[in-house]
Design a protein around this nucleic acid. Structure first.
Lengths: 339, 339
DNA sequence: TTGAAAGCGATACCAC
DNA sequence: GTGGTATCGCTTTCAA
């Protein structure tokens, strides 16, 4: 069943080396021989054995996708990333190997490196504290996806969280809000602080004093946006608008508001972050900051390939533009003024 | 950086063969030697090179996930499947390799087989017409996920579409509906006809005559449920309830109904299929038939592993139970009768 | 322009 | 119980 290079060579009465050279574009092969080889290759259905090639060449042509996240967070988000990554990987003739565990531990990571399972890794969501150190130690190229990394020497592709939050907050202020709740997810690290900075800058620009009671932190591992939202509602002077951590939590918040007899956006405006399909399907539809997840996925593979090809390359850090998408959940269309 | 079996053998003053045997549980190794080897293994951080192992053993310990679908259909659905598959694969110490293309063509499939990229394939969504034939020819084990296959000799894991549609239709009838629209996706093949059979059986059981104008086919590649839904509404005698092809299309339908000033479920009831997270997040929340996607993903990997281990195994075909989940989109709570 | 042979890192057969 | 060696399929150096 399996056709090897030896089958081709016997079939043509040539040596294995000549066949190999013909296939790998060496110059010292007569064009006639090359043609015969290529022909035989098609005729017999030869495809070089991946394992043998990997062993000989020392590269696997595989990229690992390390999705270090509880499955509940595996929303639409990851699908967009994966499809972008898959597209780019295909162009580079790389396979994508999936590593999805709640927690990929250090030992596992070492194994992936030492066993040479992949040529490089794309880290999606929070990498382990020491994961990056291990990868650096093992000289395994990697790119962090979706968030900035404070660590020196780390390449990443991140959305412009600061600007996104800034635009979103400005929009809410324009809609007349001056008490804007902010759902923070502390474990998001720089993502969180960037967004928070954007939020605060918008307040400063509008000369709205910052009120810390409007900031509520979601719990670690919390996937439901309702508790944080309700906590905001229960404060003595609740917000009239809320920025949720992401679209999924925003959808939960809308649900909660609805359950409590509140109209969105009349009684409370709610905005999300990410720009997933669900933001079009909530009722009211959701205002959100859209990340170019597909393109980010592509870019991160491209950057990773550069690192794989040239391991002396300095880190590449890209922040990609986001887009404010205004929908019903924050937009008071039934307006009274002339402004 | 990379530690090989030779490093271990030199370190201990043993031969490579002894080290290998110690690691692979051969009996003819003294327990003392075995202990020393295992110890050195940990000390030096040895992990066997995957490519070398694959080449020698003729297996890759990789399972391919062939996701043959336009990206738009890559919803939450695939995430549940993947996480189940990943869980099972991990237990079998298999890696998952992702093949996501709109269309994986025959040539590509042949390459995957001949190059021995994987030990087996999980086919998600519609496999190519001749894909299965190629795989059989190449003796590549595979399992079809999510749908029955009429082809003899093909293993699959499928939801109980017939029973799901039966229960769902009965529920709608109980809610007082006797004009129930049915959105069909012809390209779904047996999935479609099984559900349709369930739908019709429920009508028969309730002695409701079947009206073909209530069946509307969605277009190939159509992801938006609105057009089909609107087509149903525009008939001279429109339905009072609609069964959508899946939750995503149902969500679109709800949106459409809303846009046309119709209340769901008062003016029209809408039900989905699949039981994805979105069914909890629409407004009203969506009645649906929930598939155990995670467990189905697990099972399909388990079955695939059986085929990989024993290639004489007859096909395994499993139909997994589904669950009717009644939510707001079909449930008239504000009722008037005592029944 | 072609071919022989070494070697990538592992496993497994067969001597000893 | 241990070690030498062939082998998996490929690429690449070197010799012819």
């Amino acid at each position: 069943m399996a056709v090897t290079i030896e089958d081709i060579s016997k079939h043509l009465g040539l040596s294995k080396s000549t066949v190999s050279k013909a296939l790998n574009g060496y110059a010292d092969v007569s064009s006639e021989t090359r043609a015969r080889v290529i022909n035989a290759t098609k005729e017999l259905g030869y495809h070089p054995n991946r394992a043998a090639r990997s062993l000989r060449l020392g590269r696997t042509n595989k990229i690992g996708l390390l999705i270090n996240s509880p499955i509940q967070f595996l929303s639409d988000y990851i699908n967009h990333v994966m499809s972008g990554a898959a597209l780019a990987a295909e162009r580079f003739e790389q396979n994508l190997t999936l590593y999805t565990k709640e927690v990929v531990d250090a030992e596992e990571l070492r194994r992936i490196c030492r066993a040479r399972e992949v040529d490089g890794l794309l880290l999606i969501f929070d990498p382990l504290q020491d994961a990056k150190n291990i990868l650096v130690e093992e000289q395994m190229p990697f790119v962090v996806f979706g968030r900035r990394s404070a660590q020196a020497g780390v390449s990443f592709v991140s959305p412009d969280n600061y600007f996104g939050a800034l635009m979103l907050t400005k929009h809410l202020i324009e809609q007349g809000h001056d008490r804007i709740g902010f759902m923070a997810r502390p474990q998001l690290g720089l993502t969180n602080s960037d967004r928070f900075a954007g939020y605060q800058q918008a307040l400063v620009d509008a000369e709205i004093p910052f009120d810390p009671t409007l900031v509520v932190e979601t719990q670690v591992g919390q996937r439901d946006g309702s508790p944080a939202f309700l906590q905001l509602l229960r404060t003595s002077n609740p917000p009239t608008a809320v920025i949720a951590t992401n679209d999924l939590m925003a959808a939960d918040a809308i649900q909660s508001a609805h359950d409590h007899g509140l109209d969105v956006p009349m009684d409370i405006a709610i905005a999300g972050f990410d720009g997933l399909k669900i933001s079009e399907q909530t009722r009211p539809t959701l205002t959100t900051v859209q990340q170019p997840l597909g393109r980010m996925g592509q870019r991160s593979i491209e950057i990773l390939m550069q690192h794989i090809t040239d391991n002396t390359l300095p880190p590449i850090r890209e922040t990609m533009p986001v887009e404010l998408i205004i929908r019903e959940s924050t937009f008071l269309k039934i307006e009274n003024d002339s402004n």
